[in-house]
């Protein structure tokens, strides 16, 4: 495709002036492609992210916890929908996105390929996974593509409840019996490093970052967000009296930030490639839900069609 210089200039100017790009505006093809990839990946993460927590709904320790977890998981379904809708404004279809997820072509956040082994994991996920998601998502409320930014505003309003209910679970366990404290510590031990990986590869190994920053799709780099998250989370762990499983973690007076140990990137890439503990199980659950729901979609469409014909016959 030949790029029209005027259109390209107009686009660059709009981005430089922090004006939002809207669906019908001209945009460079790579910008559109990057957005479709990022937004659909984000949507898939919300949807697949329901699985590890959904796993505990029937086993929640009280009716209150059950209602809360159910509401949280329901919110995540909503987040997936807001994001799929935003991606659809770029000319891709829901069907295409779902197909790409199910075929393994599209990715979702690596964090959801870890298992939820105990109730404390519901606490750790809300506190840490949603906490990390918030770090990532708040700056996206100012991302350059209008529908994506608006979806993020909506999502961010709902996320804070997710994080707080998780922290509340952790507080309860941390103040509980020896066994409960051990459960909470074990959950923190297992989730800490995978959560740090959620921010993506290190800046010097993240080839798309520079362009995404230039287009103002991203507002902070992976490493910047990871650092913000560590700085925000350490005092929260201290309050719980739990220890973060990193011997190298310490406050750096000169930097004004916490230093932390190095991440096992081999593990990260293995999980991204599909070899994490639950990758197969997650995709299978999604495919199964989609296939077993096919008759419902067909029946609803047939019913809608029948009602249309009936009402036009009445006229």
């Amino acid at each position: 495709m030949v790029t029209h210089p005027d259109l390209q200039n107009q686009f660059d100017l709009q981005v430089a002036e922090d004006q939002r790009i809207e669906p019908k505006d001209w945009m460079p093809e790579p910008y559109r492609r990057t957005l479709v990839r990022q937004i659909s990946q984000h949507a898939h993460s919300e949807i697949v992210g329901m699985l590890p927590e959904g796993n505990w709904i029937t086993r929640a320790p009280s009716l209150r916890r059950k209602a809360v977890l159910l509401a949280k998981v329901q919110d995540e379904a909503g987040h997936g929908l807001y994001l799929y809708s935003a991606a659809e404004t770029l000319g891709t279809s829901r069907e295409q996105m779902i197909d790409d997820l199910h075929s393994g072509k599209a990715k979702y956040s690596s964090i959801f390929n870890y298992p939820t082994l105990s109730w404390a994991d519901m606490g750790a996920i809300g506190w840490l996974v949603d906490g990390a998601a918030i770090m990532n998502q708040v700056p996206l409320c100012r991302t350059s593509y209008g529908p994506y930014a608006r979806a993020m505003v909506r999502i961010c309003k709902e996320e804070s409840f997710h994080q707080r209910q998780g922290y509340e679970i952790m507080m309860t366990l941390a103040k509980g019996s020896e066994a409960q404290r051990a459960m909470a510590q074990d959950a923190l031990n297992r989730w800490w490093w995978p959560v740090l990986m959620m921010f993506g590869p290190k800046d010097d190994e993240s080839p798309n970052t520079a362009l995404s920053m230039q287009w103002k799709i991203k507002r902070f780099t992976n490493d910047e967000l990871r650092q913000k998250f560590v700085d925000a989370t350490v005092p929260q762990a201290e309050y719980l009296g739990l220890s973060i499983p990193d011997p190298d973690l310490k406050w750096n007076e000169t930097r004004g930030h916490y230093d932390f140990g190095s991440i096992n990137w081999d593990e990260f890439w293995e999980v991204v490639k599909g070899n994490g503990p639950c990758n197969r199980q997650r995709l299978e659950a999604r495919r199964k839900a989609h296939e077993e729901g096919a008759w419902v979609r067909e029946a609803a469409a047939a019913y809608a069609k029948k009602r249309m014909t009936n009402s036009s016959n009445d006229e």
Partner: peptide, 21 residues
């Protein structure tokens, strides 16, 4: 925002569940 639905009634109910929780 937007959503997919088979007909207006379903669109209305989905809109309620998604956008006015």
């Amino acid at each position: 925002g937007s959503l997919h639905a088979a007909d207006a009634q379903m669109a209305m109910e989905n809109a309620r569940d998604v956008y006015t929780r």
